[in-house]
Amino acid sequence: MSIHFEKVDHIYSPDTVFEFKALEDVSLDISIGRITAIIGATGSGKTTLVQHLNGLLLPSKGFLKVNDFTIKENEKPKNIKELRKQVGLVFQFAEYQLFEETLIKDVAFGPKNFGVEEKEAEMIAANALVTAGIDPKDFNKSPLELSGGQKRRVAIAGILAMAPSILVLDEPTAGLDPQGAKAMMELFSMLNREKGITVLIVTHNMEHVLDYCDEVVVLESGKVIMHTDKKQFFKNDQYMEKASIDPPIIISFKKMCQKQGVDFDTDVLTIDKLVDEIIKKRGKR
């Protein structure tokens, strides 16, 4: 089990006036069983990168290995269906892909495509919907009757129903209210913890990176410019300033304290820990 990119380039519309190099010389190892955040400015190649993982896009140069599959340049891997079953990809604004009359049918669509019998598919779908936080009362509603956040949950359930071992999410919380976004991130964290699913999240939200992710990959103009542990990443606040990333509130707070001469340990990354530290420091005085 591994995810490995080897010198991957991706060029859109090659040999035309629209030619665009979206990825350049990307070599990357994603850790299995962890939550990895992929960040970078708009147009830095995040979406292009993740769409290689289940063979929707093929490298223009180089190759990548995902589990037992090798995705080579401009060549569709054999048994691509199995690859897509193992790598669940949730798109940005995934709610737009719902099409069936009822939620349960829509979620069962995935497993049915992979050859599961109708009855069993609906059982799997019901489980996935519950996991994604949908009330069983709503299973027979039309997707059009739901709110945006609920629709997104259904779309995610549609991917979970395929029981992927790698879950890739392209800005899963974009356009959700803070609470809904938080609940969504909790869901991915739970899937990672309890089912050991490897999670990759494309995001702009540094709070989420801090609270839920283990590792961070930073893309800039199609190149991987950084791949580190979360702690290392947040130590390097100069980088965040340069890339005009808004640091999480706790990092900003610690920096403000530092300016006033109060230093906190770099390990302090949660509010609870920070409070403890402050109390400890006060005790000393």
Partner: peptide, 9 residues
């Protein structure tokens, strides 16, 4: 692409 990710061929 989204449907292909759900196994549509």
């Amino acid at each position: 692409k989204a449907q292909a990710s759900r196994g549509v061929d």
